[in-house]
Amino acid sequence: MIVAIAFTIAVVVSCLYVALYGGRTGRWGGGILLSTWPMSWALSKLMPSYGKAIPVLFLVDLMVFIGLLVIALLSTRRWPIWCAAFQLNTVAAHLAIMLSPVVLGQAYYAMISIWGVPMLFVMVVGTLLDRRAELRRA
Rank of each mutant, 00 (worst) to 15 (best):
E134L: 11
V12T: 09
L120I: 03
M1G: 13
I9V: 15
Y108D: 02
L129S: 06
M119K: 03
I71Y: 05
Y108R: 02
A133Q: 14
V13I: 15
K52E: 13
N89W: 10
H94E: 04
L129V: 14
T127N: 04
V56Y: 11
R24D: 07
I9L: 15
N89V: 13
E134N: 01
Y21I: 07
Y21T: 11
M39D: 00
L95H: 01
Y108L: 01
W115I: 04
V60G: 07
I9C: 10
S44I: 04
E134S: 08
S35M: 15
H94A: 06
H94Y: 03
R78H: 07
R27Y: 00
M111T: 01
L128Y: 14
V91K: 02
I5E: 10
V3A: 12
L33G: 14
F121T: 13
G22T: 05
G22K: 05
S44C: 03
G51F: 02
W79I: 05
P118W: 08
L135R: 14
A53W: 10
A6D: 10
I32L: 15
M123R: 03
G67W: 09
I112N: 04
V3Q: 09
I66V: 15
G26N: 10
G116M: 13
A19Q: 12
V60H: 06
I97T: 09
T76C: 09
I2Q: 03
M123W: 09
L43A: 12
M111I: 00
S14K: 08
C15P: 00
V11R: 04
G29Q: 02
L120F: 01
S113V: 10
R27F: 08
T36Q: 12
I9W: 12
S75V: 06
Y17A: 13
S113P: 00
V60E: 14
F7Y: 13
T76G: 15
A133D: 14
L129P: 00
N89K: 06
K45R: 12
M1K: 05
A110Q: 14
S100R: 06
I5V: 15
I114W: 03
T127V: 15
L62R: 02
P38N: 07
Q106G: 00
I114E: 07
Y17N: 05
V117A: 15
A107M: 12
V11C: 14
V91Q: 09
A42D: 00
S100K: 11
G126D: 07
S75E: 01
